[in-house]
Design a protein around this nucleic acid. Structure first.
Length: 422
DNA sequence: TCTGGGGTCCTAGGACCC
DNA sequence: TCTGGGGTCCTAGGACCC
């Protein structure tokens, strides 16, 4: 059996943990650059605020009238709260796969074998509530796809008290019959449309199809989904954290960028950040891509988007990546555009063990360079003063908007909440 | 005025190998 | 007249996820 544990309205709930004064009020969390709504608590959902809705389209008087609490996303806080949830799960269950920032697949412990599955779910739910003040939903089923469905049911129907045991095949069928196919894990916008055209409306309709025919018409992913809905496990618990395959660092700008020098600073900052991530994972990359784009929503000027990439000798040296990034940028830059977003992608990774050295460069020099990067990282990780490269600039005119940022309650000493005892 | 960021997997097509 | 077969690796693009 798989148990899928997922925190309810994760970002919005994290904000609430340290703000008991906003209990019962609608809460929304905005994406980077305060662009879209990416999390809402139930009170905000009830007001009809949709996921992904642009923040500027919500009238100010509507926000005031309902006393909506607005937050910029605070990833330092969410990442730390996520760790607390995962640590609690690790303590409770023998095997866990951290699937995203707010959810994990778990194997239920044999020590709880004698208890009904639903009760096991309740124990997990109550313990996490006690340890982190966050409320989770628990879905239990023989496959991951069904566990996801059970979790959906646990959230959708309050009378389940946040735990659904879907081990029984009749219950599986009953739930699938009343669940829209678009709620199935792996069914996105495009598939939903195609399914509807084939008269597939519920999860049950999808489950009834033959996997072979589905494979022919779609692909192996959809085939697996169909098999999993029928209780045949195709996806296993992946406990090992695989090393990642790409690093993306990109941002929308607070204000449109029109000058090459400002764009160059932004790109250099993203590149430096990506290089830091690369080194912290002890990886080397052999490919770099830079992209820039104007706003796709601007109806007046035509949309411009371009990218360029370059193959590299394996490297994680910020200076080499900065040089490539700037070279590519000057090739794809088009003067006169109002740029809204830019980013850097690193991929084609290899490890220190399989890395190919550059035949034409000096080996001892390379070792020296590695040492230099290590030293820079060490200083930046342990001191308040930051070392950075000149090309990153100092003005930061390209910075994103974060108007409603909450304190880093759990990761900054200066931000720790004060408690008054009266 | 204003519309997120960071990932994975699969497939097709091209270059290349023997 | 007639021009193979079986692979791998890489990249780009499209779908999906949270």
């Amino acid at each position: 059996m798989f148990a899928l544990v997922d925190v309810n309205s994760f970002y919005a709930s994290c904000e609430k943990v340290f703000r008991p004064d906003i209990n019962g009020k609608p809460i929304i969390v905005l994406s980077n650059n305060d662009g879209c709504v990416i999390a809402r608590n139930n009170e905000a959902k009830r007001l009809g605020i949709k996921m992904g809705h642009p923040y500027f389209k919500i009238p100010l008087n509507f926000i005031k009238q309902h006393d909506i609490q607005v937050f910029s996303s605070n990833y330092a806080l969410y990442a730390d709260m996520s760790n607390r949830v995962m640590e609690t799960l690790e303590m409770l269950t023998p095997r866990i796969e951290v699937y995203s920032i707010d959810e994990a697949f778990c194997q239920l412990p044999s020590s709880m074998n004698h208890l009904p599955l639903e009760l096991q779910g309740k124990i997990i739910r109550n313990t996490i509530k006690q340890y982190t003040h966050l409320t989770v939903g628990v879905g239990i089923a023989p496959t991951k796809t069904l566990a996801k469905l059970a979790n959906y049911a646990a959230k959708k129907w309050p009378q389940t008290n946040g735990v659904v045991d879907l081990s029984d095949i009749r219950r599986q069928h009953k739930l699938m019959t009343i669940t829209p196919v678009s709620e199935v894990w792996g069914v996105g916008k495009k598939l939903h449309k195609q399914f509807n055209a084939m008269n597939i409306y519920t999860a049950m309709d999808l489950a009834r199809l033959s996997p072979h025919q589905i494979r022919k018409k779609f692909n192996i992913i959809v085939e697996r989904t169909v098999r999993e809905l029928n209780g045949e496990p195709c996806l296993s618990l992946e406990e090992m954290i695989e090393s990642r395959k790409q690093i993306i660092c990109s941002r929308s700008f607070g204000e449109k960028v029109t000058q090459f020098n400002i764009m160059r600073e932004a790109i250099c900052n993203y590149t430096a950040r990506a290089a830091e991530k690369l080194r912290s994972d002890q990886l080397y990359c052999q490919h770099i891509t830079i992209f820039i784009k104007t706003s796709p929503f601007n109806k007046v000027t035509p949309y411009y988007s371009n990218y360029g990439s370059e193959a590299l000798m394996p490297t994680n040296d910020t200076r080499k990546l900065l040089a490539s990034a700037q070279k590519i940028l000057s090739k794809i830059w088009l003067e006169g555009e109002q740029y809204q977003k830019a980013g850097v992608i690193l991929n084609n990774f290899c490890s220190n063990k399989t890395k190919q050295f550059d035949m034409f460069s000096n080996y001892t020099m390379q070792l020296k360079n590695e040492k230099l990067m290590k030293t820079i990282d060490k200083i930046n990780n342990s001191h308040n003063c930051k070392l950075f490269f000149a090309s990153q600039g100092v003005k930061g005119q390209w910075h994103m908007k974060q108007q409603f940022l909450s304190p880093a309650y759990t990761t900054q000493i200066k931000d720790i909440a004060n408690v008054k005892i009266t």
